[in-house]
Design a protein around this nucleic acid. Sequence first.
RNA 1: GGAGAGUUGGCCGAGUGGUCGAAGGCGCACGCUUGGAAAGCGUGUAAACCCCACAAGGGUUUCAAGGGUUCGAAUCCCUUACUCUCCGCCA
Length: 423
Amino acid sequence: MLQIAAIRDNIDQVKELLEIRNFKEFDLVDKVVKLDEDRRKTQHQLDAQLSESKKIAKSIGALYQSGKQEEANAMREKTATLKESNKQLEESLSSIEQALQEAMVQLPNIPNSLVPKGNTDEDNLNIKQEGTIPKLYEGAKPHWELLEQYELMSLELGSKIAGAGFPVFMGKGARLQRALVAYFLDFANKNGYKEIIPPLLVNETSAYATGQLPDKDGQMYHVVNDGLYLIPTAEVPVTNMYRDTIVGKDDLPIKLTGHSQCFRREAGSYGAHVRGLNRVHQFEKVEIVQIVEPQKSYEVLDEMVAYVEQIIQSLELPYRILRLCGGDLGFCSAMTYDFEVFTVAQDRWLEVSSVSNFETFQSNRLKVRYKDDNGKNQLCHTLNGSALALPRIIAAILENNQTEEGIVIPEVLRPYTGFDIIS
RNA sequence: GGAGAGUUGGCCGAGUGGUCGAAGGCGCACGCUUGGAAAGCGUGUAAACCCCACAAGGGUUUCAAGGGUUCGAAUCCCUUACUCUCCGCCA
C-alpha cells in the first residue's frame, strides 16, 4: 500500500509515475486525496469533542467524590447531546476510513523512474544475455516428451489424483527435484540467508499484507471453511513473520530463504505454451527475502540479481535478465528483474526467477519498521526473489542437456543427485 | 472434538468502575561516581493518528480483537481469536 502522506504532497508526480505502468485511474488517486482530507477534518473535530467529554466526565467524578451529588447530576444531563454527536462523528469517521482503505488497496505501487514504459513483455528491457545455446542432435525432444520417455513425471497420474496441472514426479525425476531444492537452499545458506520452513496456508491478513489480496484474489486456492489460502509463494508466510514488528537498525538487513510448494490456480491459462512443466498448479520454489533500510534497497536489489545470476550460471543454462516494463510490472513492485532461461527444444525463453523491490509498499501493509538514527520508526523496504522456481529449470536442464545417451546432470548437482546422467 | 485456565508496556508483573497510558521489578539509554569496570545513585524509556514547520507544545486512540452498559471501563456484560493444562484422536 502506498503511503498517503507521500501521495498528498506529490499528486501530480504520483500520477505521472503510475502512468509508466499504464495505470490511468487518476480518479482513484483524486478520491484517495479527497478522502484523506475528509478523514483528517473529521478526526480533528472528533478529537476536540472527545477531549471535551473527557473533561466533563472527570469533573463529574470529582463532584461525586466531594459529595456534590446535585451538581454532578446536573452536569450529567449536559452530556447527552455531546454523546450523541460523538457517536455520529465516530460513525462518519469510520466509514471514511473504510472507504479510504478500500481505495488505497486498489492503488498499485509507484514504479521506479528507471522502469521502462511499455505494455507487454516485448517492451521489457534486455539487460544482459549470457551462456551458449547448445546445438542438439537430430530428433531432440521437448521436455514433456523426455519426462515421459525416462519416466520422470506424469501429468496424467496427477490429473487422476488431483486434477490437470498437478505433476507427479517419480524416480530420478523426483530425485532431481529434491537435489535442486537442497542445492538452492545450501547456496542461500552460504550467502547468509536464514532457512525457514513456513506454513503452506496463510490467513487473509497475511495475504493482504504482502499484497496478494485484493489484487490476486482468484489466483490463490481458497480454503473457505477455514478462511485460509494456499500460498502462491513462500514470500507470503516468510515476509509475514515480520508483520507488526519494529526491529533495531542493527538487525537489518534481515535475510531469509524459504522453500515451499507453491499453489496457483492459473485460471484462464491453456494452450501449447502451458504444456508440460511450463505452467502447473503446484510446484516447488526456493524464495529469498530481504528486509532492509530504505537507502540501501536498490543496492540490495542488485545484489540479489547477482545472486540469482550466479545460481543460473552454475547450472550452465543460457539466460537473459530483463528489467520489466511498466505494463508487466507486478502490482506491488517498484522495480522487477526477470530471469529467463532458454529451452532449446521449445526454442523459447522461460521465466525462472523474478526479483523485486517493493520499497515500502508491503512494509506499509505489514507494518515492518525499524528505529532510525534519530530513534524514529521508519518503514523498512522489502525485496524478494525466486532462487529458483523448479519446474522450468527442470524443463531447461532436460531439453538443453539431452544427448543420445541420456540427460546429462549439471556438475554442481551431481553430489545431490547421486547420478550423472538420466538414461 | 470435550472440559477448564489465561491473554496488561521490550520482558516479568500489580491493578475489579473515576485522579490509570497504567504501581513495582528487569532490561535499555543518558548522567553522576570510578584509574577502568561492577555495584550504587539520579533521570529517562510504547505505538498510531490529528493540529503544527516532520521543532516545541497540544489533542485523540490503544491494557488480545470487536461490540455493549456507564457521565466515566484495563476493571462489568456479550462475541471472536489466540495461548496453556487435562481428556479424546493422531503423523
